[in-house]
Design a protein around this nucleic acid. Structure first.
Lengths: 118, 118
DNA sequence: CCTAAACCTGACGTCAACGTGAGGTATGAG
DNA sequence: CTCATACCTCACGTTGACGTCAGGTTTAGG
């Protein structure tokens, strides 16, 4: 599969895919002409990378953790890192819930006020 | 209260507080010598700003929504924006939960494997 | 009055994850 | 063979929320 098709299937830009390669997050074979050629599994991997990015992990962290996320095998240091990141995500979720609750209350207030006027 | 004290109390940097003022998120009175002088309520406001930033809102969005978040009064446009942001946060929470679950499974696998070796 | 600490205003630096050309090559249908 | 696409490699630009340094001023204690 070539880069444009992978981009369309995964929903990320061509530039992003090249960037992932630059960061060693994603490999590609090359055609005789030098164009990238991806196996089908690349799609899955790109989606995984996106998930981890969306979770706020940096590309540096992702490149460290991708092997064990893919293979299920990890060194103790990697396990520590995994736990740290999971906890960071958990904390972040709590922060977001607080903010969401806050906005929710504001929305309720405003809505109630406007209904009261009716 | 002067800027250094507000910084210590709120846990954000002096630079950040000046930045908030620059972005019109936070006002300050000035002493005769030109130094910033904050009322006690500023602490609360800084924490609110931090919450909204942590939720991924931009300073532009925050400056638009702060009035109604503080006062509870909003125009229809502001209400729309509030709802948009709340939904964005909700989506983000779901993303994070997915990533957390994924990492959690990896951690389980790895832990199980290492226990199996014992 | 003196001085250390805190504060002031610019203004340039940083970092991540790409966006965006510029200028050239590969591919494949007709 | 031809030509429209799709692709290639630099390499500089962008954005947000500050960090950081320079050079000067204010404040409060002794």
């Amino acid at each position: 599969m070539r880069i444009g098709q992978l981009a369309r299937r995964s929903g990320v830009s061509v530039r992003a895919l090249r960037y992932y390669e630059e960061q060693r997050l994603l490999e590609s074979a090359r055609t005789s002409g030098g164009q990238r050629d991806y196996p089908d599994e690349a799609l899955e991997r790109v989606q995984l990378i996106q998930d981890l990015f969306a979770a706020g992990l940096s590309s540096r962290t992702v490149v460290e953790l991708l092997p064990c996320v893919s293979t299920g095998v990890a060194t103790p240091a990697m396990l520590d890192q995994l736990i740290i990141e999971r906890d960071r995500i958990a904390t972040r979720i709590q922060d977001l819930n607080r903010a969401k609750t806050k906005l929710g209350r504001v929305i309720e207030n405003v809505t109630a006020a406007s209904v009261a006027k009716d």
